[in-house]
């Protein structure tokens, strides 16, 4: 499990970091932390392009997006 902390960053940075992590670690599940809905939506949209399934959990204003291998 790889964790990318992109809290405090606004797009496009979170989606770039998530995409890079997915590319560099093709076998691993990736967890991305973001704190704004735009970044959340962009990462979920990006996940479709890199053959990952995204699931989102929200807690205290921070979204944890898990990018799993299908």
């Amino acid at each position: 499990m790889i964790t990318v902390d992109a809290t405090g960053l606004s797009c496009p940075e979170p989606v770039m970091l998530a995409k890079k992590a997915a590319k560099d670690n093709p076998a691993d599940e990736i967890q991305v932390l973001v704190d704004n809905a735009t970044a959340r939506d962009n990462i979920v949209r990006m996940s479709r392009g890199v053959s990952r399934t995204a699931s989102v959990q929200e807690s205290g204003g921070v979204y944890t997006i898990t990018l799993a291998r299908p």
Binding site: C11, P12, V15, N42, M46, G49
Partner: peptide, 13 residues
């Protein structure tokens, strides 16, 4: 942002 994301992450939405 629309053009940026098209160039950057091939997302034209």
């Amino acid at each position: 942002g629309g053009l940026r994301d098209t160039f950057l992450i091939r997302d034209a939405s």
